[in-house]
Design a protein around this nucleic acid. Structure first.
Lengths: 166, 166
DNA sequence: CTTGGAATGTCAACAAGGCTGACGTAAATT
DNA sequence: AATTTACGTCAGCCTTGTTGACATTCCAAG
């Protein structure tokens, strides 16, 4: 079971094989991670891109379009396609900014909140099950490795999202 | 720092907020995870789909197309498009099976091995850095949570890949 | 030996969701 | 007044996924 050994200099001794297993774990786990929301969304007109927008709007109500662009790391054309459909369908509300009227502040509507609930219930259920199966120690490590794996810019975004979490 | 507390019944006390942070960690970390190979492949005619095929052929030399289909979870048409280009470009060799001549056994050529090296060097470098930053304890937990997050079928595939790893 | 089904390959058509480039408008800033 | 910022939108392209249909090859069962 013990794969990675600490050496006397405090570093880790990591074989290619251990690293490859980590890489494959990411690959397979990410599939599970997205599976439930994907299932819920298929049939509705939406996909993963809509889910991501909904998630982060829920997370930071009133966020601006540019902020969302930075978090999602896509082009405005790409995001706009998604936002347009969500707004048309009444899941998202877009308010002109009062301080700066060029900005649009995004909120989930009642209807949007309902879908967000459904999606995140499914995703959190899986996350909760995984956490419980792995135990408290593991949860710590999981988050630490993931955070270390992010690009610095993404890590900043991650840590800015509601000072909850860690 | 301590987020998740063990309760007296041995379960974990997990708030929605903690679970959401985990979800977001997966999202941002996966971006980092794919960033380096993506960068290498852009400009070449290949993409993430080619990388995945190369990775798993390298991992299980001589694997069949059906086996690869099961691992990657895509349609044969989709995989075939990728394989065709890799074979045409001389990165992958496809040998008619000797036992069962309907099957094709897939191998990386010299050229294919070179690209695999380049891609996996980059990806392993990031993984190694993340592991080292997080420490040995964390690595254990990371793998445990990811494994628990997989769909059972994917977990089987994951554990079958060369009994290395854990 | 024939036949059914499995494994593979391929063609066509389509959709989601990325991308670039160009352009327009309103509002803030200088 | 001129420039820059924030946003929206049109048009077109690419990758990678999908379904459906069909051909080939070959193992295995009847």
């Amino acid at each position: 079971m013990s794969d990675s050994a600490a050496t006397s200099d405090g570093l880790l001794f990591l074989t290619d094989e251990q690293l490859r297993k980590g890489i494959e774990a990411m690959f397979f786990a990410y599939r599970g991670f997205t599976a439930d929301p994907d299932r819920i969304l298929e049939g509705m007109d939406y996909g993963r891109a809509h889910h991501r927008a909904i998630h982060f709007i829920h997370r930071s109500p009133g966020t601006t379009v540019s902020n969302l662009l930075a978090i999602l790391g896509v082009t405005k054309q790409s995001l706009n396609r998604v936002l347009r459909s969500l707004i048309e369908d009444g899941l998202v509300r877009s308010d002109k900014g009062r301080e700066d009227a060029r900005e649009r502040h995004l909120f989930l509507t009642e209807k949007g909140l309902l879908l967000e609930r459904e999606l995140s219930d499914a995703q959190r259920a899986r996350m909760r099950a995984a956490y419980r199966a792995a135990g408290p120690q593991a949860v710590q490590g999981f988050r630490q490795v993931l955070e270390a794996m992010m690009d610095p810019e993404m890590r900043r975004q991650y840590n800015r999202l509601k000072e909850g979490g860690t």
